[in-house]
Write a protein that binds this DNA or RNA. Sequence first.
RNA 1: GCAGCUGUAGCUCAGUUGGUUAGAGCGCCUGAUUGUGGAUCAGGAGGUCCCCCGUUCGAGCCGGGGCAGCUGUACCA
Length: 509
Amino acid sequence: MSKPEQPNVLKQPLPRLVARQPRGFVDRSSPDIAATDRMLAAIRETYELYGFEAVETPFVEFTDALGKFLPDQDRPNEGVFSFQDDDEQWLSLRYDLTAPLARYVAENFDTLPKPYRSYRSGWVFRNEKPGPGRFRQFMQFDADTVGAASVAADAEICMMAADTLERVGIARGDYVIKVNNRKVLDGVLETIGLAGEEKAHTRLVVLRAIDKLDRLGPDGVRALLGEGRRDESGDYTKGAGLPADLVDHVLALTGAKGQTAQATLANLARVVGASARGAEGVAELEEIASLVAAAGYADGRVEIDPAVVRGLEYYTGPVYEAELTFEVKDDEGRPVRFGSVAGGGRYDGLVARFRGEPVPATGFSIGVSRLLAALKLVKSPIVTDAAARGPVVVLVMDRDQVAHYQAMVARLRAAGIRAEMYLGSSGMKAQMKYADRRGSPCVVIQGSNERAAGEVQIKDLIEGAAQAAAKAGSIADSAEYRAQRLAQFSVGEDLLVEAVREVLARHGG
RNA sequence: GCAGCUGUAGCUCAGUUGGUUAGAGCGCCUGAUUGUGGAUCAGGAGGUCCCCCGUUCGAGCCGGGGCAGCUGUACCA
C-alpha cells in the first residue's frame, strides 16, 4: 500500500471550503432539541393513553414498497431520494411514515393483533423545493389503526388529535379538527358528470381547486373550476373548464357547512343527490358526528368541513385535518396563516397492495416541525420551559491551581449539580462572558485572596443581571461599575456545595 | 416547474453621473487598578461587493449568461 498523498498545507493552501448545508436541510440547536423532545414526549403520552403502541421502521425501504415508481418507467418518482443497491434494486428514503407502516403490517400480518394500533415518529425525506417552514428532511409523528373498518376508528383518531393539541399547549378554541369524506367528494363529482376513467384528470383539477378554498377564497376556487386564475405575480393557472352551473354545484358542496352538524349533513345529502357512493359518505360522516358528540367533542373541537380534501393519492374514506385558527404575526408584523399542522384519513387500499385481501386502515400524521413552530408562537410552556439553564462555571483565576478548581467542580458534580471548569485560555472578563452566554446560574471565583482565607466567592448571574438592569444608565464611570460586584457573596470553601444549592434554589431549580 | 423581486463584513443595510485604499450600526476580540457578564469609553479583527463572460483607460455600479435566496403560484404522498 502506498502512502496517501498529503496536501501541502504550508506551501499551497487548498481552496477554502464553504461551510454550508444543502438547501432544505437544517441544523438543530440545543433549545430546539429540548423543546422537540418535550413535545414528542407529550404526544407519546397521549397516544399511549389511547392504547397505541410504539413501532419503528428504518429510513430506507425498497422503492416499490413505497409505491413510487412512475407507471411506465423503471425509475423512481421525482420528489423521492432514491439510489440503487449493489444488486441494482432501487431503494428510497421514506417520504412519510404511512407507506412503511403498510409494509410492516403486511410483513408481520399473522403475528400482529388486529386491529393493530401503533404510533411512531421520525425523520422523513422529500426531494423537492423547500420553502418557509418546509424542509427536505422533517419529522412526523403518526398514529394508525390497521384492521378496523368501522368509522369509530376514524372518530377516535379525530378526538385523539384534539386531545394531543391541547396536551402540547394549544388552547381549546385555537384549533379545530375538520372531518370530511372522500366518498362525498366522489359522489358530487359523479352527480356533475365527472365519473369514469376519461374524466380522471378533470376530477383531479376540481379536487385541487376545492383544496385551495381556505387560501384563495370562493372567488379563487370559482376561477380555478372555470377558465383559470391569474395570481398576483401574473402567473396563470389553467382551470377545470367547468360550465357555470356545475361550478355552482361544486361551490354548493364547499359551502355546505351549516350552523350545526345536522345542518351540514342535510346540505351534503342534497348536494350528493342520487349518487350511492355520495350517500355512503354522508352516512359515514353522520356516524362519526354522533360518535364525536357522544364523547363530548362536538363543542367545536371536531367538526365536519366539506372543503377538506387532503392528498389525492391513497385516501378512500374519511379524511381529517387539524387546523390552527388563531391569528399571529411574524417578525415583520405580517399576519401568518398557520393552517394545517396534522392530517390523515382512511386508506383501505394501502396494505392490500402486499396481500390479496383488502385491509382497512386509518391514521394520521402530525407535522412535528410545524407544530413546534406553532407552540413557539403561542408560547406554550412545553417550549418556554425548555430553555435549559447552563452549568455552574468555576473560573480559572490562577493557572497553577487548575487541579484545585477541578476538585471543586468534582464536588459540585458529586452533589448532582451541573458544573464545569472554564477550559479556555482567556482572562476573567472573557470567562464571565462565557458563563453569561452559557446561561449559567452562577460562577465560582477563587483567587489568591479567597484561597488564603479558605473561601470562595459566588456570583449569582441571574440576580446580578436583574440588578444591573435596574441600575442601567445611572452608573457614571467604569471604576464605580466594577466596584459594584452585584449579587456576589463570600463563603467558606467547605460550604461551596450548600451555597451553590442556595443560589439554584432562588431561581427555581 | 412557472412568474416577480433580491444578492456588499457574522447580522441589518448605505455606497453619488462608472473614478484612489469599499463604509455605518449591531455583534465579535483586546484594553481602561490587582479580579468581574449585562453600563460607558478607546482600540482591533473581519470583504472573492454571489459566480463567469463582456463593454470600458477604469466595473460593487452598465450588458449577457449562470447560481443562490425571498415572495407568489404549481405540486404536496
